[in-house]
């Protein structure tokens, strides 16, 4: 069986720094996988390799059987990889609704003529309906429908996170990568986020969670990948990871 995401011997070097070193990993359809590692372990780089942002120095990354190295981020997005950002990248001067509909528009491509005059043709109207339907669905999923007309810049930090997730959901992704979604949230908010992620996963979405917050990852992920110094040092269910000597060493320093 082919994996939904298949990373083989991926390496990425920045000048003299080997940020990701010969990592082989996969994610299967329907999984909720965590990616953890100490600071500087290469999580973000691996993440960027998977979403087409950073080209690989060597190795391959395949999504749904198609090699995605060399593709642009927008092409990878159209294949069905959605992502959020550690430091949010919402569109501050656009309404919440418009923010989310960009996700729907970006992944329902059409020619320039259709985009300009689409409102006057049948196909165009149907497409516009599809966009607005997707947008409302995504807003509903994150509970932001009542704020649809608000400027994104006016939302508090926590809601902007959900806005970004909604924008990714409007793409109807097959695979959603969340980059440190709990960063900057308090315990209550983190618990709510955990419940939300589990709900998304329960609806059949394949999710990868890149996180610092061990509690969140251990609590909801079925499988955890651990990176340290650019290498994969462990890969398994939370119980095993918790007891893995290599992981303990990476996080806590050498133990006797």
């Amino acid at each position: 069986m082919t994996h939904l995401l298949d990373v083989r011997n991926a390496s990425r070097r920045f000048g003299g720094v080997q940020a990701v070193n010969d990592v082989t990993a996969h994610v299967d359809e329907g999984e909720l996988v965590g990616l953890i590692g100490p600071n500087g372990a290469g999580k973000t780089t691996l993440f960027n390799l998977m979403s087409g942002f950073t080209p690989l120095s060597s190795g391959t990354v395949a999504f749904a059987g198609r090699t995605i190295n060399g593709m642009k981020p927008n092409q990878v997005a159209r294949l069905g990889v959605g992502r959020t950002f550690q430091n949010l990248r919402v569109f501050p001067n656009m309404s919440v609704f418009d923010n989310v509909s960009v996700g729907a528009v970006g992944t329902l491509p059409q020619g320039p003529a259709g985009a300009l005059f689409g409102g006057f043709t049948k196909a165009g109207t149907e497409r516009a309906d599809a966009i607005s339907r997707r947008t409302w669905e995504a807003l509903e999923a994150v509970g932001l429908t009542h704020l649809a007309g608000e400027l994104a810049a006016n939302l508090p930090y926590g809601q902007r996170k959900y806005l970004e997730i909604a924008r990714a959901l409007a793409m109807r992704p097959r695979f959603l990568i969340l980059d440190e979604p709990a960063a900057g949230l308090n315990d209550t908010e983190t618990r709510a986020l955990a419940a939300f992620i589990k709900r998304l996963h329960g609806q059949g979405l394949t999710i990868m969670l890149v996180e610092h917050d061990m509690g969140l990852v251990m609590g909801i992920c079925q499988r955890i990948l651990v990176l340290a110094s650019g290498r994969k040092i462990a890969d398994g269910p939370p119980d095993l990871i918790r007891r893995d000597p290599a992981v303990l060493e990476a996080y806590l320093g050498v133990e006797s």
Binding site: P73, A77, R89, S101, V102, G106, P112, A115, R167, M171
Partner: peptide
């Protein structure tokens, strides 16, 4: 009209707000 009512306009505004964010949701920047 172009900026607020069409998808091209939506893409233009998104890119102007945050090019990377737009790219990752499938906009051809």
């Amino acid at each position: 009209y172009l900026l607020t009512r069409t998808r091209i306009g939506l893409a233009i505004r998104a890119v102007s707000n945050n090019p990377l964010g737009a790219k990752y949701v499938g906009i051809d920047t």
